[in-house]
Simulated assay, not measured.
Amino acid sequence: MRLDDTDRRLLRQFMAEPTLTTADLAMRAGVTEATCWRRLERLRKGGVLTGQQAVIDWRALGWAVEVSLRFTLDKTDPRAFDEFIAAAREVPEVLEIQTFLGRVDVRLNVIARDMAHYQQIYRDRILTLPHISDIESLMHLAEIKRGDGVPL
C-alpha cells in the first residue's frame, strides 16, 4: 500500500497518541474528520492498521525481573520447532516468542517477580521445554529505546 503525506501525518499522530478521537486526530493531522475517518478505514482495510492494544507496565505490577533466553534447538526431530513453541506458549511468564535464522533458533522473553521466582520458572518450566540443545540467558537491565513506531 502506498502512503502519501496525509497518511503519514495521520499515522504519526496516531502512534503518538492512539487514544485520540477521530476529531482530535483529524485536527492534529490537518484534515477534516471525514477525511481522517476514510483514511483510517483505508489503512485498516489495507492491513497497515491491524488493531490497538493496551501497553501495561508489568514492573508496576510487581514483576521486577526480565530475562531474554536464546535457544538453539536439537533439530534432529522435524517437529522440534513446533513442539518447542507449543510448549513455550503454555508458560504464562513468557511474554514474547521470536524465531530466527542463524545460531539462535528461538528467543523467549520471560518475566518473574524476583530472582527466586525466576529460578523456579527456569527449573520447572523452561528446562522442561522439549528439544533444547543450548540456552543463553541475558538479564534485562534497562530499556533504552522502544521501537513502538516506525519512521514516517
Rank of each mutant, 00 (worst) to 15 (best):
V110E: 02
L69H: 08
G62D: 06
V65H: 03
R44H: 13
E66H: 04
L138R: 09
V91L: 08
L25W: 01
K75P: 01
I121D: 03
L49A: 10
E143Y: 03
A112R: 01
D105T: 02
E33R: 13
I135Y: 07
L43E: 10
R38P: 00
R42N: 10
T32D: 09
T128N: 04
D74T: 07
I135N: 00
E41P: 00
Q52W: 13
L141I: 15
R103M: 12
L127V: 07
R38M: 09
I132E: 06
F84E: 02
R70G: 03
R125V: 00
I132S: 11
R28C: 05
A34R: 13
V106T: 06
H131N: 13
A142C: 10
I85S: 08
D57L: 01
E136D: 10
I132T: 10
I144G: 07
E41S: 10
A80I: 09
S68I: 05
W63S: 00
L141P: 02
F71C: 09
A80M: 11
E90D: 15
E136A: 14
G51A: 12
R28M: 08
E33S: 14
Y118D: 02
S68H: 14
R59K: 15
R103H: 13
T99S: 15
E143D: 14
E136H: 10
L108V: 09
L108R: 02
D114F: 09
F81C: 03
I126C: 08
R42L: 08
I85R: 08
T76S: 14
V48A: 11
E136P: 00
L129E: 02
A112N: 01
T35D: 08
K45E: 15
D74R: 09
Q98C: 11
V67D: 02
E83P: 01
T35L: 08
E136T: 11
M115L: 13
Q52T: 14
V65F: 02
F81T: 01
V106W: 04
G30P: 08
A88D: 07
F71M: 05
D74H: 11
A80W: 03
